[in-house]
């Protein structure tokens, strides 16, 4: 790990009365895979759009590879690539034409351009389909074309906005391999994802953002140790028993716990498995049926619960149901 490739200081973005990003400062090191986690609407995409120069920050500075984004946006754009959540290719154009347009927009000419396109088509296993319309490709082929398109100008930094959302298991695993391979070749990768296990296995460091603020930053290990040095106990109960169960654990056992939907999460610290038996015994004594119980080392899911007060999926679900309400109203 060398020096810092991106430095963000006191970044603020307001849209009217709404503050989407509220004073975020962080730095991203050269050649790391850096994850940005947070529920929808937390400010991830706004932060990324500011790094890419797509929107102008209300306050704060972003320095990319020594250049200030407000002063040298063009230089920075040459250094950065983006693959969005949605697959973006021109379906009416051939794979070759799709790549040509972007190569030319990045100022490539002649043999450089042709070499870059040949290499990209090869990387995406699309050499045999270069003259077929991208609209006729399968989802996986389009995604691969999208990835090599965003890598065409060999950016130093590649931003991947939920790169695996909507992919099946095989395609997801092969996408992870591609990401690791790119990183090995020297590309710094910034990744947002809603899959915590994906962030856990891919990222060197992770920033957790909620309500436009940076809640925590560190390696997955550091983040987990923040929650607990030891174990976490999860008890699942019937929904109507949750309140009663929480009372038992807090008052009778004098243990600290958090309720997440139908689950009680207890920080057991360095205690051993006996604690789990004690909790189960206490609940049975009160005739509260237990659906499931487990004891495990903290995961990023636990980190997320302790920092944002909900699981990443709860919040996603909430967002989605709000969105559908809005649609009905129209």
């Amino acid at each position: 790990m060398a020096g810092e490739v991106i430095e963000i200081k006191n970044l603020v973005k307001r849209f009217g009365d709404f503050t989407a990003v509220n004073g975020i400062s962080l730095s991203i090191k050269e050649n790391e895979i850096f994850g940005i986690l947070g529920p929808n609407g937390a400010g991830k995409t706004t932060t990324i759009n500011m790094m890419l120069g797509l929107i102008i920050p209300t306050e704060g500075t972003i320095i990319v590879d020594g250049y200030n984004i407000n002063k040298n946006p063009a230089v920075i754009k040459e250094k950065m690539g983006l693959m969005t959540q949605e697959t973006v290719v021109d379906g009416d154009l051939t794979a070759q034409q799709n790549l040509e347009i972007f190569a030319e927009l990045y100022g490539m000419k002649g043999k450089d351009k042709e070499d870059a396109i040949d290499y990209a088509l090869d990387e995406a296993d699309l050499t045999n389909f270069r003259n077929a319309k991208a609209g006729s490709f399968s989802g996986g082929m389009q995604r691969r074309l999208n990835l090599v398109k965003s890598m065409l100008h060999s950016p130093k930094i590649l931003v991947l906005d939920e790169p695996t959302t909507g992919l099946d298991v095989q395609n997801r695993v092969s996408m992870w391999d591609r990401i690791r391979k790119l990183n090995k070749s020297g590309v710094t990768i910034i990744l947002t994802t809603q899959y915590l296990e994906e962030a856990d296995s891919l990222c060197n460091r992770i920033a957790i953002i909620d309500h436009g603020q940076l809640k925590a930053i560190g390696t997955p290990g550091e983040l987990k140790r923040m929650v607990s040095e030891g174990n976490i106990i999860d008890i699942s109960l019937r929904f109507e028993d949750i309140e009663k169960g929480e009372k038992v654990i807090k008052q009778k056992l004098k243990m600290d716990c958090k309720v997440v939907a139908d689950r009680i999460s207890i920080n057991a610290g360095k205690e051993d498995v006996k604690t789990l038996s004690a909790i189960i015994a206490a609940l049975e004594k009160e005739k509260i049926p237990i659906i499931a119980a487990s004891m495990h080392l903290p995961t990023l899911d636990d980190v997320f619960i302790s920092l944002t007060g909900g699981t990443i999926r709860d919040e996603l679900g909430e967002q989605k149901s709000n969105a559908s309400k809005v649609m009905w109203r129209r």
Binding site: L54, K77, T84, E86, V88, F102
Partner: peptide
């Protein structure tokens, strides 16, 4: 709508 504009705008344009 299809996201092409965003893809175009991240290039020096």
């Amino acid at each position: 709508q299809l996201g092409n504009l965003k893809a175009l705008l991240i290039t020096p344009l």
